[in-house]
Amino acid sequence: MERHTGRRTAIAAEVRAELARQRKTKKSLAEATGISPYTLTRRLAGEKPFLAEELQDIVVFLELPMQDFLDRVEAHA
């Protein structure tokens, strides 16, 4: 169970970090992906895991290849 929690936290941290690097807002991410602001806030806090479809939409929004994103997550998990 801890491994999943750590990965969930690492994914959330990487999404937050990339938003900051690109100076994009949570609001713009929510609008672009169709994730409700409430749900996005919980996912970014690591309270709930992102769904695979949501991650795909997020990397498209951030213009990142999925593998690059996952490599960053693994480097910090």
Rank of each mutant, 00 (worst) to 15 (best):
M1C: 05
M1P: 13
M1E: 07
M1Y: 13
E2S: 11
R3W: 10
R3E: 13
H4F: 12
H4V: 12
G6H: 13
G6L: 15
G6A: 13
R7H: 11
R8M: 10
R8Q: 15
T9H: 15
T9E: 12
T9M: 15
A10C: 10
I11Q: 03
A12N: 03
A12E: 00
A12V: 12
A12D: 00
A13W: 07
A13R: 13
E14W: 14
V15I: 13
R16I: 12
R16G: 00
R16V: 04
R16H: 03
R16W: 00
A17F: 10
A17P: 03
L19V: 06
Q22H: 04
T25S: 15
T25D: 00
T25A: 02
T25N: 03
K26V: 05
K26S: 09
K27G: 04
S28L: 10
S28V: 06
A30T: 05
A30H: 01
A30M: 02
A30G: 01
A30P: 05
E31W: 00
E31Y: 00
A32Y: 02
A32P: 00
A32N: 02
T33G: 07
G34K: 14
I35T: 03
I35E: 06
S36P: 12
S36R: 04
P37R: 06
P37S: 06
P37Y: 01
P37D: 02
Y38K: 09
T39C: 05
T39A: 14
L40I: 05
L40M: 11
T41W: 05
R43C: 05
R43T: 08
A45R: 11
G46C: 09
G46K: 01
G46Q: 03
E47H: 14
K48E: 13
K48V: 15
P49N: 02
P49T: 01
F50K: 03
F50G: 01
A52I: 08
E54T: 12
L55T: 06
Q56S: 10
Q56K: 13
Q56Y: 15
I58F: 08
V59Q: 10
V60S: 06
F61A: 01
L62G: 11
L62A: 03
L62I: 05
L64S: 04
L64W: 11
L64Q: 06
M66E: 08
M66F: 02
M66A: 10
M66D: 07
M66K: 11
M66I: 13
Q67K: 06
Q67D: 08
F69G: 01
F69N: 01
F69H: 09
L70M: 13
D71T: 12
D71R: 13
D71W: 00
R72L: 09
E74I: 10
A75L: 07
A75W: 10
H76W: 02
A77W: 14
A77D: 12
A77T: 15
